[in-house]
Design a protein around this nucleic acid. Structure first.
Lengths: 193, 193
DNA sequence: TAAATTACATACCGATCAGTACGTAATTAC
DNA sequence: GTAATTACGTACTGATCGGTATGTAATTTA
């Protein structure tokens, strides 16, 4: 390596992730990216390939950190029911708070790109599958400890909770009355009987 | 009116709806639209305003026909449990069939546009609210007939089913194993006890 | 110090974007 | 028949798109 990079690759990727997360792939221009990443066009292309390569790198960064966040949230609570309740309620509170975020980057990408690009179909699918595994591990823990009804089918329930998570995340983009999502969460949590 | 239109406005709008449904707003170009609608650029602008106006007209056409479809599906089945089961299973079967469609145009728009455009935030929200009313009416029917457990809270359950519908529709964009959605539907339908 | 290598910034590329000016064709009103 | 009005097709606009050629600065190797 001759001349060293002057910019922090991780910081630049993080900035790109935020832009793509907020605006999506198509609506984000190279000018948006250069200004927010603080680097010039050729630096993007030499480091990340092309626009789609940068998007993929940003999405991978998101999914790995999101998975770690979810795993942590669920594992660090001794009560399984309480863990899921806190997880869902916290998600809603953040979205209805003063600094609403942009939903889930992976879900946005699933809707925008997966039907048209197999690479993203696989990438987004695998993240959802991974989330369902985390959910299932948590449910299994509740079954072993006796907190949950042994009649529960851990895998099916975990998959259902992933689908509920997606549904909640998406409908909040239209900002329905908060009671709508609150009611639904209560209803969904009854499955953790 | 002097010279009459040579093209069928409804047919043209229908074609526009299909393109937007398939590709989304940003990824659809005016050239895509003119070629699929079979008319020239100035005809689009004189009839529908601009690109976003055409998109809005297409989305409104979609939501009204989709609402009618859902209402019909649920009202025409004497059994409420069976109506919802058939509704969800049919949706999955269509998506996994030989001619997969493009999910739900309204959900796509909710993800792509609602966070950035209040007009579409309202439009998509109202459609989801309308769906939840249709669901609730159906559940109420089951409560009156005695088919459903009187302990059911119709409104909350209806809202939960809307969220499940959204989650199922979105996750199918990543084409998970069919068992994933099949398991979830079984689990969700247990709420209709 | 010289050669090789990598990074940087500027300035550009052809292509395509959404949107429109304009001339001509068709129809109505009188 | 003539004027007015609306629709259509062509061809164009300036702006922006994603991507790159090129020249120069910085660093390593020898």
């Amino acid at each position: 390596m001759a001349r060293p990079r002057e910019f922090d690759e991780e910081k630049a990727l993080d900035a790109a992730m935020q832009v793509f997360w907020e605006k999506g792939f198509e609506a984000t221009s190279l000018s948006d990216l250069t200004s927010r990443m603080g680097i010039q066009r050729p630096s993007i292309y030499s480091t990340f390939g092309d626009k789609k390569g940068l998007f993929e790198a940003a999405l991978r960064k998101y999914t790995s950190s999101h998975a770690a966040y979810v795993r942590n949230k669920l594992h660090n609570n001794p009560s399984v029911k309480e863990a899921f309740r806190a997880f869902f309620e916290n998600m809603v509170a953040e979205e209805y708070g003063q600094n609403p975020n942009w939903g889930c980057f992976c879900i946005n990408s699933m809707v925008e790109l997966s039907p048209h690009d197999e690479k993203f179909e696989i990438l987004t699918r695998e993240h959802q599958m991974y989330l369902s595994v985390i959910f299932q591990e948590t449910i299994d823990r509740g079954l072993r400890s006796g907190e949950l009804d042994p009649a529960i089918h851990a895998k099916s329930l975990a998959q259902t909770l992933v689908i509920s998570l997606i549904g909640l995340t998406v409908i909040m983009k239209s900002r329905p009355e908060r009671s709508f999502v609150d009611n639904s969460i209560k209803e969904i949590l009854t499955l953790l009987r």
